[in-house]
Design a protein around this nucleic acid. Structure first.
Lengths: 355, 355
DNA sequence: TTTTTTTACGCAATCGTTCCCGGTAACGAT
DNA sequence: ATCGTTACCGGGAACGATTGCGTAAAAAAA
């Protein structure tokens, strides 16, 4: 079945005018008489005329749609970002085409090809955990495709970027853990090369250093799939607990990582924060209802989406090539809850766990 | 900045052919010689030619994009459905334009107008809690727009529909509560007119009836915004606890309702399940990590998205008008956890709560 | 009354692609 | 030598909208 819409040609025929006249009347051109305008406008209104956006796109050589690539929609952080993207795009007459990489480089490239073949006007992307080769993005960018990176950015491509203050967020989080008496703080993180990993781990290490705690590389673990696969988190947690000197807290650097760490600690029967403290990046609004209520670092996800979209629209609608790019850094929020409760004061760190 | 792509005309010019020949060569037409085909194909390949989808859309009078309207993306149920929609759409060369009603009728109509003005080929929609007037949807449908309803369906419009077995889900859930010893089971629900509310409440009432428990209308509460606003859930919970005969369990019929009930019970200091049992529809994967782990009814969200999209594509691609519509009913899953632990056997229900 | 200006509208090209018509060779058959 | 096939390719309209240019009629100026 087809859904046939009224065209300018139909109006012209019905009113005995030419298409040009109708078009001009609809756009309120000065060279159309008030009577004709009224005639056309009323007819269009009554018959619910809408200009065909596809014809317009063809004419204007722009689709008025922007592509968004994230690893997963069903992730509270990204769905909030998309929310922000949507709101700005919608208000500016753009629509949003969303694609998911599911943390796979191949799917990301496929999505990229798909979106460009759908002739998007611009792209907002947070790269997958697997992505190490940016040549495809670089090529696209060099061909003139407006791109804005957010969250997981690509430093070697010069364009607008939007990130949370990952360094500061991680620094504050780690400092908080230290202040609560934790000393052997493990980090469970995304792949090492990801921009957010680099930034967050730098904050983590700086906080340790500033508090005179030596960085223990055996306490730093990376999950290749960003915690999407439970087993990889399990492996990491097992490794941590197999250490001679077990960690007394875990700092997780991503949403899925944080909740899956909690999941595994519970499965393994460790008490949080009794046996081990837990704190991580997360954007779900359920963290305070968890057992235990989770201390988290929250990103201004919605706002990040808004900012990224505004920057992208700026790029798209700019007449001349933009060369002055900026990186917007938005502050995170540390929410302190039960999972990082102060450790009972003791003479020295307990080497063995009670449970 | 513009992103200029190679066109068929460019190829024609470069190769000294006509556009028709190039077009035919690319589509592997029999009336083009193998040599010419090879020439064109190689040139196209080398210069990374992609047919312009907008021009194609204009020609074929179809946009190859489908509209999706849900109340909120950042809701685990809907984001999972969208996931399913995406996967099928993507595999069939369609893209998905998502719009959010945020449980507002006005926004829903606005979205509808926006999507149709973007000339979508079809629509998948779960109506907002506010929607009582379906005239706009009816008009669209009567004009030939392929529509598939899911979750919150509109019975008076005859087209494909996809729902979970809400009746059975609610029946099983309520029966489970009864089997656990709960007798005064309150229902916290979406607006009464919503299809899912009707179905779920019917299951709830049937389960009570089948177990010889009288339906107490004072225990049935409706939240006009589907729990999106915490205060409305708070009002409802307050009302329930102000009753002479307080409920001993709450059955919540939607994701936000379920988690927000838990939130409020905790805020108010009620122990779950000690003071009151809790069970509800939910699709977040965090419910088992909550305090207490929540008993839930889970919908096959991803699958629902898949099924809905397949049905929609069927409608879109059908040559002649479809008149034989079906309503697919998918089974829910009851996951029993701590929040509905069996009540200690007592002579009669405790009238006052301990806390 | 004639010329100029203004008003109001139509023609046709354009965007990228497809496809209905043609058209022209080459070749074998008559 | 003529006709019919086959193979191969091009012209141009169409999809829906915009827009530069041309031009008729009406109004204003001469």
């Amino acid at each position: 079945m087809k859904f046939e819409a009224l065209t300018i040609k139909d109006i012209a025929k019905a009113l005995g005018l030419s298409t040009s006249t109708v078009s001009r009347a609809l756009r309120d051109s000065y060279e159309i008489s008030p009577e004709t305008k009224k005639l056309v406008l009323e007819y269009a209104e009554k018959n619910n005329y809408h200009p065909n956006p596809i014809a317009l796109s063809l004419k204007e050589r722009r689709s008025r749609s922007i592509g968004v690539i994230v690893c997963e929609i069903a992730n509270s952080y990204f769905s909030q970002v998309i929310n922000g993207i949507e709101s700005i795009a919608y208000n500016n007459g753009y629509n949003v085409i969303i694609a998911q990489s599911r943390e796979s480089f191949d799917r990301e490239v496929l999505n990229l090809q798909y979106l460009t073949s759908r002739s998007i006007d611009g792209l907002i992307i947070s790269v997958s955990t697997e992505t190490k080769d940016f040549s495809y993005l670089k090529e696209l960018h060099s061909k003139g495709m407006p791109i804005v990176f957010f969250d997981r950015i690509v430093n070697e491509i010069d364009t607008h970027k939007v990130i949370a203050d990952n360094y500061k967020g991680a620094y504050e989080a780690t400092t908080h853990l230290i202040n609560c008496g934790y000393r052997r703080i493990a980090a469970v993180s995304n792949p090492a090369l990801l921009s957010i990993t680099v930034e967050r781990m730098a904050g983590y290490k700086a906080a340790l250093a500033d508090n005179g705690i030596e960085v223990d590389e055996s306490l730093i673990k990376y999950c290749q799939h960003g915690g999407m696969i439970l087993s990889e988190v399990e492996d990491v947690v097992n490794e941590l607990f197999d250490l001679n000197q077990r960690p007394d807290a875990i700092f997780a650097t991503a949403d899925k990582l944080t909740t899956n760490c909690l999941r595994l600690l519970k499965i393994k029967g460790f008490a949080v924060p009794g046996d081990i403290g837990l704190l991580g990046f997360s954007n779900t609004d359920l963290t305070e209802l968890l057992d235990p209520p989770l201390s988290i670092i929250k990103q201004p996800a919605f706002e990040m989406g808004e900012v990224a979209t505004n920057l992208l629209l700026q790029l798209i609608e700019s007449k001349r090539p933009v060369t002055d790019f900026e990186t917007k850094v938005l502050t995170t929020e540390l929410l302190i809850r039960e999972s990082t409760r102060k450790k009972e004061a003791k003479a020295k760190p307990v080497p063995s766990l009670l449970k």
